[in-house]
Amino acid sequence: MLLSKIWLIPKIIVILLVSATSPWFLPQPILYKAIILITTLTLLLYVNFKKSIIKVIFFVFYIALIFAQVFSTDIKNTYNFSDHRKYLHQNRLDQYPPSLARVGNIIENHLDSPIIYQTQQNFFESLDLVNYFKNFFPIVYIFPFIFGLYKFLKHPNGLLTITTIFSVLLLSVVGIHGSYGPIIIFPIIAIIISHYPFEK
């Protein structure tokens, strides 16, 4: 227990360092900064100590973060397709021979409709490492991130796994192009960088 507490100090320092050096975190409004930081720290405390009370506090701030994510994202814009995409869609429909036109309609307008494709795009954009390490975090953090991610996948923590899945699913629906970007992912990346590389 004492050892865990001692190990917590460098982890908190890393979280503060990641936050202070993130070109993504710094320009956020002060309220958002506070919510993000408290969510991150409570998540760190939970994965270290697994206390119910910490989990409750985490959920309170995580829900606030969900609201922040949803209200800072223009969902309508996410599903407002460009003329080029509409043209491509129509062009692809036209490529089905007349005998398969009905099948083509079912596939292109229902099973693999532009909305489903956009949701897939949102999903993979929410996992796009290039976006995160080119725009949101200094590139040097990629090393502890990959190392930490590997350890996380080997020994997943339940709460962090649920948080990750829910955050990615949420971003898959609302898209990542909000005023403040996919802020809901920040605590997850920060924990992977700060906590897991120190784990055995």
Binding site: Q121, F124, E125, L127, L129, V130, F133, K134, I139, I142
Partner: peptide, 22 residues
């Protein structure tokens, strides 16, 4: 080095591997 690292993570990014080639 930054450029090389960005190239590297572009190739390993799930978006590149599973969705859309950059």
């Amino acid at each position: 080095l930054k450029f090389i690292l960005l190239q590297f993570i572009t190739y390993i990014s799930p978006k590149t591997l599973f969705f859309e080639l950059p």
